[in-house]
C-alpha cells in the first residue's frame, strides 16, 4: 500500500493508521499550537488551541484522526487570530500575573501568547478570587492560573491511579478541585513522584523551594520560541528535566 498522507497547509505530511492530525504534524516537526495535548496522555480536545480547518470544517487537531488526502489549514491568519482570542479569554478568566509567577518562561500558555503575538488581554479582566492550597509539604497549588486542561486529572486518574484532581461545576463556575473531604492536597496520597505533579502546562502545580532555581530570562521558552521546539514537544515526557 502506498503511504497515506494529509495536505497540511499544502504540504504532504505522511501518517500511520490511527494517528491524529496533531500526531502527523508533530512527527513532521510542524507546529500546531496546543495546551491540553501531551504525547503521554490520551487526548481530550478541550482547550481548542489546536483548532485547524480540515476539509472546510473547524476541528481539534489533537483528536481528529488523519485521513488520506485530507486538506488541513493550520498556520493561517484566520486560525491564528481565533487562537489569539482564545488565549486572551484564558488570560482574563484567571489571574495571570507573569512577573510574579514561578512558571514564567517555562509556561506553555505564555509561550503561545508570545508565539501568536498576543500583546494585550483585550477583554476585561475577571480577577476571580481563588485561594491557594499550600497544605502539601512538597507541592503548592495556585489555582489562579488553572486553564482547566485536565492534564493533571488525566495523569492522576489514568496513570498514577489516584484520582487526586477533578473538575467541578459547569460553564464559568467550572474549577479544579482536590478529591479530599477537606479539599486540601495534604489530605490526599498525592506525591512529588506522581506524574500529575509534573504535567501542568501552566503555573498551578508547583514544586516548593525551587521556583527561581533557573533565573528568568534563561528558561525554556526564553531561549527558543515554542514554535521552534516541536521535536521536544513531540517526545516530551513528564520526567523531562524541568528548567
Amino acid at each position: 500500500m502506498t503511504q497515506q498522507s494529509i495536505l497540511l497547509d499544502g504540504l504532504p505530511v505522511p501518517f500511520e493508521e490511527g494517528q491524529t492530525i496533531m500526531d502527523a504534524a508533530m512527527a513532521a516537526e510542524i507546529f500546531i499550537p496546543h495546551l491540553c495535548h501531551h504525547p503521554e496522555f490520551k487526548p481530550q480536545g478541550s482547550c481548542k488551541l489546536c483548532t485547524v480547518k480540515a476539509s472546510g470544517r473547524y476541528v481539534s487537531a489533537c483528536t481528529m484522526p488523519a485521513r488520506d488526502g485530507m486538506e488541513v489549514e493550520n498556520n493561517s491568519p484566520d486560525l491564528n487570530d481565533k487562537r489569539r482570542t482564545m488565549l486572551q479569554m484564558l488570560f482574563v478568566e484567571g489571574n495571570h500575573f507573569c512577573p510574579s509567577c514561578e512558571k514564567s518562561g517555562n509556561c506553555m500558555l505564555q509561550a503561545l501568547a508570545y508565539e501568536l503575538e498576543m500583546l494585550s488581554p483585550h477583554f476585561n479582566q475577571f480577577y476571580p478570587n481563588r485561594p491557594l492550597d499550600a497544605s502539601h509539604p512538597q507541592v503548592l497549588l495556585d489555582f489562579n492560573r488553572c486553564i482547566l486542561c485536565e492534564l493533571c486529572v488525566r495523569a492522576s486518574r489514568d496513570v498514577d491511579g489516584k484520582h487526586v484532581f477533578s473538575l467541578s461545576g459547569r460553564g464559568i463556575t467550572k474549577h479544579l478541585i482536590v478529591n479530599a473531604e477537606s479539599g486540601r492536597l495534604a489530605d490526599t496520597d498525592f506525591s512529588l513522584t506522581d506524574k500529575a505533579a509534573h504535567v501542568c502546562p501552566v503555573g498551578v502545580i508547583l514544586e516548593k523551594r525551587k521556583g527561581f532555581a533557573v533565573p528568568i530570562g534563561q528558561r525554556r521558552y526564553d531561549v527558543d520560541p515554542i514554535g521552534m521546539q516541536v521535536e521536544r514537544l513531540a517526545h516530551r515526557t513528564t520526567t523531562e528535566e524541568e528548567i
Partner: peptide
C-alpha cells in the same frame, strides 16, 4: 496591560 502587581489586591 493587565493591572499587574497592584491588581493583586483585587480579591
Amino acid at each position: 496591560v493587565n493591572g499587574g502587581l497592584p491588581a493583586q489586591r483585587n480579591h
